[in-house]
């Protein structure tokens, strides 16, 4: 049996981080979540990371370029996190350098209260 949905007052409040992700290899939406969790747990530890409540909402490939004979995949991602933990999450993500020996760089380019407004403001290439 499915659990009944919580009333709005009991639900957790979220913010949405808009991320600019650069990677050497292709990343799927499913790959992004463990990358973010690993970064948070490595920097903040298991205890503090338990407040973050991360989830990848959207994941778009923006461009694919080649520099010095190496491909660079540029993605924009909408990442959900707890409302009081935005700064902690962005710190942890900015300290990520490699994932499975592939270079990766994650920058937070904006914070939004809803997915829709985040996409409208920061991911104008995507028509939704």
């Amino acid at each position: 049996m499915k659990l009944k949905v919580l009333p709005p007052t009991l639900r957790k409040n979220h913010h949405y981080l808009i991320l600019d992700v650069k990677s050497e290899v292709e990343l799927s939406k499913e790959d992004m979540l463990p990358i973010c969790w690993d970064g948070c747990i490595r920097y903040w530890g298991e205890n503090h990371s338990s407040n973050f409540d991360l989830w990848v909402m959207r994941h778009y490939l923006v461009s694919e370029t080649i520099q010095n004979n190496e491909p660079i995949f540029n993605y924009k991602t909408v990442l959900r996190c707890g409302r009081s933990c935005c700064d902690d999450v962005r710190v942890a993500l900015s300290t990520l350098k490699r994932q499975n020996r592939n270079k990766i760089a994650i920058n937070t380019i904006g914070i939004s209260g809803t997915v829709k407004s985040g996409i409208n403001k920061f991911i104008d290439e995507i028509d939704e």
């Binding site: 650069k22 660079i72 962005r90 993500l93 900015s94 270079k103 760089a105 920058n107 937070t108």
Partner: peptide
């Protein structure tokens, strides 16, 4: 390129 981070980060 992979070392560049945004100012706010």
């Amino acid at each position: 390129l992979y070392d560049v981070r945004s100012t706010r980060d």
